[in-house]
């Protein structure tokens, strides 16, 4: 009922909707309407009530409410079911729990804040309230487990494409799937997989985008290395529109991948890459290399040309870029 009233207010804005109209079209009492208006106001919607004229929606809160994301979402299955959390430890933890309980493919967990955000290898990922988009997708691709890590690069392609379309900011991809603006990280992706030898039980793709943080919102230790779309562009970004675009791009790329394999995904990844055809330094947990980032192979591994001429295949590690 609350959603139906909200839809009605949105359709009519900036004109008011009379109480009588709402009563008639939704078959509710005036007292019930009043209660729903209070609930909407508590959620941050600004609603003006005038005697005789009725109710006017004058402001929509900057929140990632499912009803706001769904309003205009173009996907077929992705994000059709959204679990909204004001605050969570990590959206991946919540999504894994839901997946274990049988949540359907395409379900999405969205949070306004992550208190236990983690990057790869358990590193901290700073995720303050209402400033970013922290979300996890639950997927169950019908592929063998070793192919599933292609989705992590697919995610980078999809989010980069969505940011470029929605904001015009020239984000680039750093191998394998960090998104950078002017060398600073604005998005991190962590995929977690539950699988047996031959079969994937579920896959959770966690994506964190720094959207509206100011530079001073970042803790001291991240100020040099992190940025947000706002610090990069000087413009406050509409988070709801951006997550909608990200879901649409992701679904589109996911379907391309299922139909035509990794090749088109990798081609697009290479186009948007900033860590290819340049000198890079790779820090793996127990060794490091320096060399020319020559190519990415069909599994997504980085092919590094070492100073001695030898080609080294790298599957994991921290990449530092030296742009020339």
């Amino acid at each position: 009922m609350k959603d139906a009233i909200l839809r009605l207010l949105k359709e009519r804005r900036p004109e008011p909707v009379s109480g009588e109209d709402i009563c008639k079209s939704l078959n509710v009492t005036r007292t019930a309407i009043w209660k729903h208006m209070q609930v909407l106001r508590e959620s941050g919607y600004e609603i003006e009530a005038r005697p005789r004229a009725g109710y006017t929606l004058t402001g929509i809160p900057d929140r990632l409410y499912p009803e706001e994301i769904l309003d205009g979402l173009s996907t077929r299955f992705l994000g059709r079911k959204i679990y909204y959390c004001d605050s969570v430890s990590t959206t991946n933890e919540t999504a894994k729990e839901l997946a274990r309980q049988g949540a359907a493919e395409g379900a999405v967990v969205v949070a306004e804040e992550q208190t236990g955000g983690k990057g790869r290898l358990g590193r901290r990922w700073f995720a303050p309230k209402y400033k970013g988009i922290w979300f996890s997708l639950i997927l169950c691709p019908p592929v063998l487990p070793p192919e599933a890590n292609q989705v992590t690069m697919l995610a980078a392609v999809a989010v980069a494409a969505a940011i470029r379309k929605e904001t015009g900011i020239a984000v680039g991809i750093k191998w394998p799937n960090d998104l950078l603006v002017s060398g600073r990280k604005i998005c991190g992706i962590l995929t977690e997989l539950s699988a047996e030898m031959e079969r994937i039980n579920y896959m959770v793709v966690g994506i964190g985008i720094n959207v509206n943080q100011e530079q001073t919102d970042f803790p001291e230790e991240f100020r040099e290395s992190a940025a947000s779309l706002r610090t990069a562009s000087g413009i406050k970004i509409n988070r709801v529109k951006l997550i909608r675009a990200a879901l649409a791009e992701f679904e589109q790329w996911y379907e391309i991948w299922l139909e035509r394999g990794f090749t088109p995904v990798l081609a697009s990844w290479k186009e948007m890459s900033v860590s290819l055809h340049c000198q890079v330094r790779i820090h793996a947990p127990n060794k490091s290399w320096e060399g020319w980032a020559e190519d990415i192979d069909s599994d997504g591994a980085l092919l590094l040309r070492l100073p001695g001429g030898e080609l080294q295949r790298v599957i994991s590690g921290e990449v530092s870029l030296r742009m020339k």
């Binding site: 487990p145 599933a148 890590n149 394998p176 962590l190 995929t191 977690e192 539950s194 699988a195 599957i315």
Partner: peptide, 11 residues
């Protein structure tokens, strides 16, 4: 196990 930022649980 971690492979290119995909973590895989082993059971």
């Amino acid at each position: 196990i971690n492979c290119m930022k995909t973590e895989i649980q082993v059971f």
